[in-house]
């Protein structure tokens, strides 16, 4: 066996669902072990990821401009944007929690959007890069994505708990946009095939 060979170039396809290695000679369309459709690489990986990424970029704007929740105190509504909520937490001395929310709802989504864009550019323009480092970046992006749901869950808890005659918290329009951003970027990361980064490297 050659030292550093791609499975595909040696005539094998790895089943995406169960990990079974199938010979491509017979051109099988589905995995003999788990029956899921076989693809050498995720089908239309770059197109799908780009489409999902563009939608999340667009939704990211309303998610940050509009209030994510509104605190109603005795009839007076005080809208809170994502950034406003963090500033409020830090102002009231809850710095660690403020930083946590800052990371989960601002740093993670924005660096995810930038990171996936870079991965797409790298795969599309066949940049010669340290593929191992870029794969690690992909792994980090795929791992942290779900933690951005923190804000959405928190709103659902606050809306439920703070529901009194005098004081009420209601969810704002940005909540829908933000949830959509998180979910779309998760799908985008799922659709990106890191093996494309390796396929493009000429000297490994």
């Amino acid at each position: 066996m050659q030292a550093k060979a791609n499975a595909l170039s040696q005539g094998f396809i790895r089943c995406h669902d169960c990990g079974y290695l199938v010979k491509t000679v017979n051109q099988p369309s589905s995995c003999p072990r788990c029956d899921s459709p076989l693809h050498a690489r995720h089908p239309h990986s770059l197109q799908r990821t780009t489409a999902l990424l563009l939608s999340s970029f667009l939704l990211y704007i309303p998610a940050n401009i509009f209030p994510i929740m509104i605190v109603n105190q005795f009839g007076v509504g005080e809208p809170n944007t994502i950034a406003g909520g963090i500033v409020e937490l830090i102002d009231s001395g809850m710095i660690p929690i403020g930083l946590l929310v800052l990371v989960a709802s601002i740093l993670v989504p924005s660096s995810k959007l930038i990171g996936i864009s870079l991965l797409l550019l790298c795969a599309h323009f066949r940049w010669q890069v340290n593929a191992r480092r870029w794969t690690t970046m992909y792994r980090v992006i795929a791992f942290v994505g779900r933690w951005s749901m923190l804000d959405i869950f928190m709103i659902s808890i606050l809306v439920d708990l703070v529901n009194f005659n005098g004081v009420q918290i209601i969810a704002g329009p940005a909540a829908t946009a933000f949830a959509a951003v998180v979910i779309l970027t998760m799908f985008a990361a799922e659709n990106f095939d890191p093996r494309l980064l390796w396929d493009n490297q000429q000297n490994l």
């Binding site: 066996m1 050659q2 550093k4 060979a5 791609n6 499975a7 595909l8 040696q10 094998f12 790895r14 995406h16 990990g19 290695l21 199938v22 010979k23 003999p32 593929a131 794969t135 992909y138 792994r139 890191p194 093996r195 980064l197 390796w198 396929d199």
Partner: peptide, 18 residues
């Protein structure tokens, strides 16, 4: 049939020994 004696990495497609 189809029994292979190799494995592949899911993220970089390197052909591996099982």
């Amino acid at each position: 049939m189809n029994i292979t004696h190799y494995d592949a990495c899911p993220e970089c497609d390197l052909l591996l020994n099982p």
